[in-house]
């Protein structure tokens, strides 16, 4: 009769939940090392050293050196650390805006809901990067400009998710009962709604993170973000463009690859968290 096509799922000593937790742990450790590296690495390795200019990757300089003899590995790790920091601020800001507007849309009546969905439409109707350029321009670029820009542009999709979630809990029986028992809005929000949307909020935050980091790097690359004195990845890559035609590929290759790995790691944590949370839900 019909042959069994099963057994694709290999046996392993850990179950899915443990494996997912393990993956998340590894990712977090990796990111922690990068951040610590950025803080602890010797600043001396990125001072101008004209004796070791333009050298290709070697054991001494894993990622090579640039035209001023600075060690590219150190610059990259510092850049990543900076990117994660900026990303963290931007993602936290965006998540807070999303939380506030999503809750407001779901609880403060029809008018507020319409207004907020109109604001969301407003933000989604201009290309993301153009909005970022506009905001960075208004604030005169630099750290402040990029952070505010990132905070103001990444919340709409998460706000929609939170609005839907809050709507769902609000109609749930236990909330209805609390309402009848005369509990205040704030009490219900704090005791019923917030705990319910916390997982979504965490997942949403983790999935925002990679976007924020990528956009920071992109805007900085375009010259409208962090200042050229900062060791940001965007700066490194934009500087490298001048030297690419002379064959110094390592200036662009490694920093970008590392950025990719960091972003992918964040994305993985978010996805794994999602798996974990939806599993425990049912």
């Amino acid at each position: 009769m019909i042959p069994s096509l099963k057994n694709a799922n290999k046996r392993s000593p850990l179950n899915l939940k443990q494996r997912t937790l393990f993956k998340i742990l590894i990712s977090i450790v990796f990111l922690a090392i990068v951040i610590l590296g950025g803080v602890l690495l010797d600043e001396g390795r990125i001072v101008t050293n004209l004796n070791e200019r333009n050298s290709a990757p070697s054991l001494k300089h894993l990622f090579g050196t640039d035209w001023l003899g600075r060690d590219m590995f150190t610059r990259t790790v510092m850049g990543l650390s900076l990117s994660i920091g900026v990303g963290l601020i931007g993602a936290i800001g965006s998540t807070l805006i999303a939380l506030f507007l999503g809750m407001a849309a779901a609880t403060m009546g029809k008018m507020a809901d319409r207004l907020i969905s109109w604001i969301i439409d407003l933000f989604l109707s201009v290309p993301h990067l153009v909005t970022l350029i506009l905001i960075a321009f208004t604030l005169g670029g630099g750290f402040k400009g990029i952070v505010i820009g990132l905070t103001l542009t990444h919340w709409p999709s998460l706000a929609r998710v939170i609005r839907a979630e809050v709507m769902q809990v609000r109609s749930a029986e236990f909330v209805q009962v609390s309402q009848k028992m005369g509990k205040s809005r704030w009490w219900i929000a704090l005791h019923h709604i917030l705990p319910h949307i916390a997982p979504q909020l965490l997942i949403g935050f983790m999935l925002l993170f990679p976007h924020v980091i990528l956009h920071e790097a992109a805007v900085t690359f375009l010259g409208l973000g962090l200042s050229p004195h900062e060791p940001a990845i965007g700066i490194i890559l934009s500087e490298s463009m001048k030297y690419l035609s002379s064959g110094m590929w390592w200036l662009a290759f490694f920093p970008g690859l590392c950025l990719l790995i960091v972003v992918r790691t964040f994305d993985q944590i978010g996805e794994n968290l999602r798996v974990l949370m939806t599993r425990t839900h049912d």
């Binding site: 590929w249 970008g256 972003v263 992918r264």
Partner: peptide, 21 residues
């Protein structure tokens, strides 16, 4: 999934290195 995490401008630089340089 990897592409979704790749910076566009870096991909551009890589292509520039490979095909143009």
């Amino acid at each position: 999934f990897t592409l979704a995490s790749t910076p566009t401008f870096w991909m551009g630089l890589l292509i520039l290195i490979v095909f143009a340089v």
